[in-house]
């Protein structure tokens, strides 16, 4: 079942004085099935942040549509957006974005508090998610008292506690050392196994190699995608780095790969994963 469907998404930024127009997204289409773990890769300036902001309903597309669980985002009113975001989406940011005035516990509970959930229910969910992420013992601490990895797991807990339909992670390992990164990625894999849909934007091949499917964005279009199939993380890692190398050389010579503007579904792909 499709939980997220993105249809020919375009975003054009106009510079302040109306002179230059910058096309950040030139028609992106893809979909994510429920329970899937998808990574989006791309270099700086490829448009992946713009894409994520639109998916998170923090920004509006110039044209095209986004359906989350069958509901079109652009049809959600301005006032309901915050509530919609709170109920359906969980965010994990590169910079953690934990509030320094809250303890870890309060940071995690904040979305539930905003949603007006009862105290007992809150505690039950907190206990569960904290156990799953292995942060039960640091709940009473403040963000400045714990390590980066713990902060990010707390941020993940905050994203998961609302039982969102989709977790959006923006470079979640970007500010972490390698050990914390692999711990966090293991957490992501675990929650994915329990059925949580995850969409992760990343630079890191290592992070992407945990996903079921990897989309490559370049110059505002989905350029390519790889399926995991039966490959292990290591195999997928290799495939991703090969693809990246190939993409780069192709980009540099500008010849050998045909650029499909549209990669929705499985058709028209230059490289396919084993199925």
């Amino acid at each position: 079942m499709e939980i997220l469907k993105v249809n020919d998404l375009k975003k054009t930024y106009t510079t302040r004085f109306g002179g230059n127009q910058v096309q950040a997204l030139k028609g992106v289409s893809f979909s994510v099935d429920a329970g899937e773990y998808v990574a989006i890769m791309g270099e700086s300036g490829s448009g992946k942040t713009t894409l994520l902001n639109i998916l998170a309903a923090l920004d509006k597309p110039t044209s095209g549509s986004v359906f989350l669980d069958g509901k079109q985002l652009s049809n959600v009113g301005e006032d309901e957006l915050a509530k919609f975001r709170r109920d359906n989406l969980g965010f994990v940011f590169q910079e953690f974005n934990l509030l320094d005035t809250f303890s870890i516990k309060d940071n995690i509970l904040l979305p539930l508090v905003l949603g007006g959930i009862g105290l007992n229910e809150m505690k039950k969910r907190l206990e569960k998610v904290a156990y799953e992420l292995g942060i039960s013992d640091i709940l009473s601490k403040f963000p400045y008292e714990v390590s980066g990895g713990q902060k990010q797991r707390a941020a993940a807990a905050r994203a998961l506690i609302t039982n969102p339909k989709l977790v959006l992670a923006d470079e979640p390992t970007g500010a972490l050392d390698s050990r914390s990164s692999s711990e966090l990625l293991r957490v992501f894999s675990n929650i994915n196994k329990q059925g949580q849909t995850i969409l992760m934007v990343t630079h890191s091949t290592d992070a992407a190699s945990n996903a079921d499917r990897v989309l490559f964005i370049r110059d505002g279009v989905v350029f390519h995608q790889i399926f995991r199939g039966d490959s292990t993380n290591e195999e997928l890692y290799k495939k991703i780095s090969d693809t990246l190398t190939m993409l780069r050389t192709a980009g540099d010579t500008g010849a050998s790969i045909k650029t499909p503007g549209n990669c929705a579904g499985n058709e028209g792909l230059g490289v396919r994963g084993q199925e």
Partner: peptide, 10 residues
């Protein structure tokens, strides 16, 4: 940050 987490402007 609060806005990103889902606090409405009001």
């Amino acid at each position: 940050i609060m806005e990103k987490i889902g606090m409405t402007t009001s």
